[in-house]
Structures are given as C-alpha cells and as structure tokens.
C-alpha cells in the first residue's frame, strides 16, 4: 500500500478502528476473557493439583457439584440471605436518612448548596478503607462514642439491663451501620438530582388547592422522585450485596456475607470451582437489581 493510500485508508477506516479497537481489545482480553474463565471454572472439578482444578477426568465434563452445594448447603444459603438482608436494610436506612437530606439540599440557598454538595461528595474521594477504619475506632469497647451510647443506654433502661459497654463490633449491626455510612452519598446524589428538577410551582398549586404540607409531600413530591429513589436504592444495594472489606473488618466471622465466602473458598479452602460458582451465583443475583436500575436511570434521564 502506498503512503497516500495508507493515509486515505487511515482517515476513512483505520482511525475509527483504532479508537474503537484499542479499548475494545483491552476489555475483551483483560475483563471478558478472565470472566469467561471463571464461568468455565465454576463447572470444573476441584483437584489437589496446581492450579487446583481440572475438566473431565473421572467426572463428567460439566460438573454441577458446586452449584448443587450452593443450593443445598445451609452455609451458602445463609450467606446469600445475610448479604441480601444486610444490603436491603442498608439501602432502606440510606433512603430514610438520604431523602430528607437531599430534600433539605434543594431548600438551602444556592451558595450553601454548592458547599454542602461538595461536603457530600468529599468523603467519597477519601479512602474507603479509612472510612471503615474510622468506625472501628468509634465502635470499639473503650471509645468515647461507645461510652456515650453506653451511658445513654444505662440512663434509659432499668438498672438490671445496665452494660459496661455496647458490643457493636463484629456484628451485622456494625456491617449495616458502616455500609450506610460509606454508601449514603450514592443515595443522596441521585435523589438530589431528581428532586432538584421538580417544579416548585406544583407544590404551590397543591397548597393553593388546600393540601397540607404532608399531603403535598405524599401526593406531589414523593411520586415524582420515585426514579431517583429506585436508582439510589440500587446504587446502594448492588455494591453492598457483594461487599468484602466491611464484613471482614467489622462483621461477624460466623455469619459471613457472600463476598467474604468467595474470598475464603478461593484463598483458604483453595476450592476454585466453588469460589467461581458462588461468584456466578452472586452475579445472577445482581442481574435483576441492575436491570431495574438501568430502567429507572433511563427514565430519570428521559424526564430531564
């Protein structure tokens, strides 16, 4: 090909091919291929070799043993239920705290609003690990925060119920508390985005027609912010269900969540097919909330 021919080909096709092709190939090789390997591994057989799996041999080519164990072994079923429960409760609490905060953000003056929005986003930029760690400091037995709560508890309840400190660490309560803390911005931001777009005239119209503030909220504000509620809820639920760091640091080891189970099966039990099968099951579980999310996300953007 002559230089000029190449240059013409490059302008017409090569350039576009390069812009699409480079990231495409990268993602296929380093994301899709590894995932397909995991998918294949979930139906392989665990063997005491290195790497610890094989296809075929005395077992049939496709070994569904790992999936069978997920469905029947109480440990895995409980881990799935714990994850779903913790993620659901976290999303609900984020909604209860995040909704009035987002609504409040739309009511403050413009200059304050920018500062406060910055303050909502700022923790998101600081280290996730350290935000979890900060709560380890607060929840510990000797901390001032635990002391404060203990005093309040002892003051409120009969003397027989008095405690020396509140056992917060290493419990599902701690996991939910820290998940609410770390994922609350994910709830506030989409809610704020959908509430900010609402027309204040509608509120006034409803008021003029005789609605009380609570009714205006129930009949006007709430229904219109539904896409934001669902988008925010899914943005909290999806990462919370697969969380590994928080349950490992503040959770109860005898009630593991799925993320921790995958990691343990892989690194400690060295049962790669089992870890792969749990991972695939977790992803299947994520498909429904993800589809709900993208449906409402598209709706929220469509109404712009």
């Amino acid at each position: 090909m002559s230089t000029e021919g190449f240059s013409r080909w490059f302008d017409r096709k090569g350039w576009v091919g390069l812009v699409i092709g480079l990231p495409y190939v990268w993602l296929v090789v380093l994301f899709l291929l590894p995932f397909l390997i995991v998918l294949a591994m979930s139906v392989a057989t665990n063997t005491p070799t290195a790497p610890p799996f094989s296809f075929g041999g005395e077992h049939p080519w496709i070994n569904l043993g790992a999936y069978e164990r997920i469905a029947t072994d109480g440990l895995y079923v409980r881990a799935f239920l714990t994850s779903i429960f913790n993620a659901f409760v976290s999303a609900m609490l984020c909604l209860l705290i995040g909704y009035p905060m987002a609504l409040g953000l739309t009511r403050v003056s413009k200059s304050w609003r920018n500062i406060l929005l910055m303050l909502v986003i700022l923790p998101f930029w600081t280290s996730f690990l350290l935000r979890v760690y900060a709560w380890m400091g607060l929840m510990g037995k000797n901390s001032w925060f635990n002391g404060l709560l203990t005093d309040a508890w002892n003051f409120l309840v009969p003397i027989d119920w008095a405690v020396k400190s509140i056992p917060m660490m290493n419990s599902n309560f701690a996991v939910v508390l820290v998940m609410v803390y770390t994922y609350l911005p994910f709830m506030i931001l989409p809610l704020y985005a959908s509430l900010e777009r609402l027309d204040p005239n509608l509120d006034e119209a409803a008021m003029d027609l005789g609605s009380r503030p609570a009714q205006v909220f129930r009949d006007v504000t709430l229904p219109q912010s539904l896409p934001g509620i669902i988008a925010g809820g899914m943005l909290v639920f999806i990462p919370a269900a697969g969380e590994l760091v928080i349950p490992t640091l503040v959770g109860n080891a005898s009630q593991p969540m799925i993320g921790r189970l995958i990691s343990d099966e892989f690194s400690q039990a060295r049962d790669w097919p089992m870890a792969a099968a749990i991972a695939v099951a977790l992803l299947v579980l994520m498909v429904v909330p993800t589809m709900i999310y993208s449906h409402y996300q598209a709706k929220a953007e469509g109404s712009k």
């Binding site: 995958i262 870890a275 977790l282």
Partner: peptide, 10 residues
C-alpha cells in the same frame, strides 16, 4: 457493577 471480589479473583 461487578463486585470487586469477583473482578479480583477472575
């Protein structure tokens, strides 16, 4: 949306 554990292990 992929949980980090899964991305890490794969």
């Amino acid at each position: 949306i992929m949980p980090e554990v899964i991305t890490g292990i794969s």
